[in-house]
Write a protein that binds this DNA or RNA. Structure first.
Lengths: 351, 351
DNA sequence: GGTAACTCCTGAAACAGTTTCAAATCTGCT
DNA sequence: AGCAGATTTGAAACTGTTTCAGGAGTTACC
């Protein structure tokens, strides 16, 4: 266990200089700083453990400044994680990795400086390499909501592919021929999976894939309403819509009822659910479901227990299957597809 | 700025003993600890500022172990606060005050030990004295969701009394004579206010107060459904219901539609909203609204700015008024009140 | 009763990293 | 060249913490 004085001797400077390099960026000339940092690495110096009265878990966001993108999923993650941590008698530090800057030596040291003993990591888009780097240092961490091949990385996530396929099959089995999909504009691997599952299921059921029936919108309630407007005003409208996000599902249902249709008589709807939203609408909607706050809870509690044990022995590589719940928004298609003008006027007479 | 050595001299012990008293509870005999603590107070010693690379804000929960009671409001608070803090480039430490134990000297020291420079406090029921104690030490803190007479306490909260009255008046003005209220079983000052506002508004409009029309349930979606069942099966059912919680409102609407009634034709509904729930249901519901995550955002940003300034100069004593939004769930009452059996059968014929 | 063994408590001294202060060095300008 | 001012650096002093050994008290055994 080398001290700053050892490093100082190694770099042939005073201990004061080492201390300054480590804590007061910009106060030491560049060449000297380099020499000291090399000595730090050579001697294997690492800053002392911060004597904290309480143990902290980090809930770490990676990639870009974390601003407005905090959606329902993240709200569930943050509050689920905070709650679980408090139950385990840990405190939770919510932080953005970018705001901490690149680590001086290792991420382990970086986290130690803040007082974080273990991290639940949530990556937005980028930051996968970061997760791997942290994991490979052996720092106790779990990534939430993403999957990794690298065996060093612990993660907890959901896989919605099978149930996305089941959702579309369910509609096909009821007799729907023209099944539309409403999907988030911003592409990510999750939504790409769902997109693919939709096409696979159509093909498996021998239904034609019509690109017109895929609508890309912002995944909020207005987006869902827009999708309904657009789809139902087509010359040959769908009789069922598969919404791949919770809020767009709710918005779609609201808009459908607003223009005077009955669900599921006139239009069948399958949605996605992050929590309990499907039980709140009327009718309660058929959905591919995942419990996101449970994800955070699992990750946090596992981490807390690991830290309590001392040694970081375990691994956690858990891909939860979503579950598919049939509720009251899906039924056989109407004899005649219902067509509605964008303003809400029914265009085709009923049979 | 006295050091441990000064304290040691004052208490006539060694610096080592002082250090032990301050950090290793139970390692020092009781009488010596007392002597040292008295010396600590006498000399005005306070532990050194923890040199953290990042500044931390505390989101502090008081009173009892924080467990399952994390409702939608708290989820909004935690995620709103975390997001705001990250934007201000602070980290948030979520902690429960009880888990920290009683402070050795002052709360200021306690927080400093953890690295918390300012606190957003959310109290569950008890803990009001605690907030005052913290505020009176001059520690930068804002209480969220509660009001204080003590001028030392900074707070941000909502007042729903005026709009609760307006909600009931709105129904009365539409011609409703029998207006029911669905309220949370667990009493707190907020709900007591709403209860009183309901009675006041009835009286102001010259309507009779019927205790039968007040239903107490758990404030979740099932509770709302139960309330509808109970109220609509009364011999003389109400023509309007005032729900005083967001989830019970949604549950009430769902149940009403489920038993085949039309809203607002057969039953008018006014609810409460914490966020954007009112826009998600069909029909979007008329509601007394507050934006709870905004509450957290205001508190957190104000705190962050205070800390950036250095001196804790300002005060923040903000009672937001809720706002009342008329949507599509309220209209004139039906000619004949609709009565429904608990199983969902209509009991009175329509006019 | 004496003594050995043991635990608990405490202070001296050593140790950690940081900060102060003054000297040394560099920079830019006459 | 010479000088004022800023920058950079190390020696020493200063934090709080920890180690280690000794003293005080207690118990166990002869």
């Amino acid at each position: 266990m080398p001290s700053v004085r050892d490093v100082a001797r190694h770099a042939d400077v005073s201990p004061a200089t080492v201390s300054r390099v480590l804590n007061k960026p910009g106060m030491v000339s560049a060449e000297l700083r380099d020499r000291v940092l090399r000595a730090v690495r050579a001697t294997g110096y690492s800053p002392p453990e911060r004597p904290v009265s309480n143990d902290h878990l980090g809930l770490v966001y990676t990639g870009g400044p974390v601003t407005a993108e905090f959606g329902g999923f993240d709200a569930a993650v943050v509050s689920g994680s905070a709650q679980a941590a408090l139950e385990e008698r840990f405190d939770v530090i919510v932080t953005g990795l970018d705001s901490l800057g690149p680590p001086l030596t290792t991420y382990t040291d970086l986290f130690r400086t803040i007082g974080i003993r273990g991290a639940v990591i949530r990556t937005m888009g980028e930051g996968r390499e970061l997760c791997e780097a942290i994991a490979e240092e052996g720092f106790p961490a779990v990534v939430i909501g993403d999957r990794f091949d690298n065996p060093a990385v612990n993660y907890v996530c959901y896989d919605s592919v099978a149930d996305s396929r089941r959702a579309v099959s369910h509609l096909a089995d009821l007799g729907h021929k023209r099944i539309a999909m409403c999907i988030h504009m911003v592409r990510d691997s999750d939504h790409d999976d769902r997109r693919q599952a939709y096409r696979d299921a159509l093909e498996a059921k021998g239904l034609e894939y019509d690109p017109e029936l895929t609508v890309e919108v912002i995944a909020d309630s207005n987006g869902g309403a827009t999708a309904v407007n657009r789809l139902l005003s087509m010359a040959s409208p769908p009789t069922a819509i598969f919404f791949t996000d919770p809020l767009s599902t709710v918005g779609g249902i609201r808009r459908t009822l607003e223009i005077g249709l009955e669900i599921p008589r006139d239009l069948s709807i399958v949605g996605f659910d992050d929590g309990h939203l499907r039980k709140l609408t009327y009718p309660p909607f058929t959905a591919v479901c995942q419990d996101s706050s449970r994800l955070a809870t699992i990750a946090t509690k596992w981490l807390a227990q690991q830290l309590r044990m001392g040694e970081n022995v375990g691994t956690l590589r858990l891909t939860n299957e979503t579950f598919f719940e049939v509720n009251r928004t899906t039924d056989v298609p109407p004899a005649q597809p219902v067509r509605v003008s964008p303003s809400g006027q029914r265009l085709t007479p009923k049979t």
